[in-house]
Nucleic acid binder design. Structure first.
Lengths: 129, 129
DNA sequence: AAATCATATAAAATTTATTTTATATATTAT
DNA sequence: ATAATATATAAAATAAATTTTATATGATTT
């Protein structure tokens, strides 16, 4: 039951649903998401951590950036995620995506160049070194 | 998004998942659920209200009893409910059901005799008279 | 090597959710 | 009519989650 609860708790927040929606089309770094949602960075990091601990996201280090992406390894989680994404109306997620596109245009080049292997998630929010 | 969030928030609680699991096999009154979960009645009423406001339950008055049952009218909700129920391990829900069976055996007869039509749910927790 | 950038985390402040306790209302039983 | 039962709700107490603010760490650029 614990894992189930973590999943539902992770999905029970507007900010986190918006993050999942943004990641629908592929991985993004924290600053991308921060720009898209127009929020302060520690807040975004907090929510990313909740999603990661629930097993809904995976992260990987890319130079000084940390990339996050959906983890749809379990069919159960996938159903829940898709159900969640289905319910997000266009007017909110559209604005998020517009801010993201604008940010990406002005973003310094050289990003994405030296990504390392995904960091394993031990389910407790602490990285395995 | 509001409705989606209400649904996930409603599912993000162990007590409420246990209630949904109990209602899987049919409607029950508040005292049945209270006995099964071994909790105080106002607590159970509180959680029933959360579930009802999220549109996951319907209620109907049966004499002095108030019966609650799953509302699986929307396919989306149904998927989420089923996903939730799937994840509840047997050892917890089995105990709940044992207490329920015991309570039902000793319950005064005459229940279920004069149920009235389901009370309409306006989505805000207040009954439509 | 110093400055800058991206991110995480810790602590405090705030908000939201849950639980408890007491009580009110309606229904049924005596 | 009175007592007992089933439930809801309100208020207070408690607990949990979120947000803010400040700061630390590691990577990159200059």
């Amino acid at each position: 039951m614990k894992e189930m609860l973590d999943t539902f708790r992770a999905l029970a927040d507007e900010t986190r649903l918006r993050i999942l929606k943004l990641l629908e089309t592929g991985e993004l770094c924290v600053c991308d998401i921060t720009a898209a949602l127009d929020m302060v960075q520690p807040k975004v990091s907090f929510h990313l951590k909740v999603l990661k601990n629930a097993g809904l996201l995976r992260d990987k280090k890319c130079g000084k950036w940390m990339h996050y992406e959906l983890d749809i390894s379990h069919i159960l989680k996938r159903i829940v995620i898709l159900t969640a994404l289905e319910g997000i109306p266009d007017d909110i997620s559209k604005k998020d995506r517009e801010r993201l596109e604008y940010f990406l245009k002005n973003k310094h080049e050289g990003a994405f160049k030296d990504c390392v292997a995904p960091i394993e998630n031990n389910g407790k929010g602490t990285k395995v070194k």
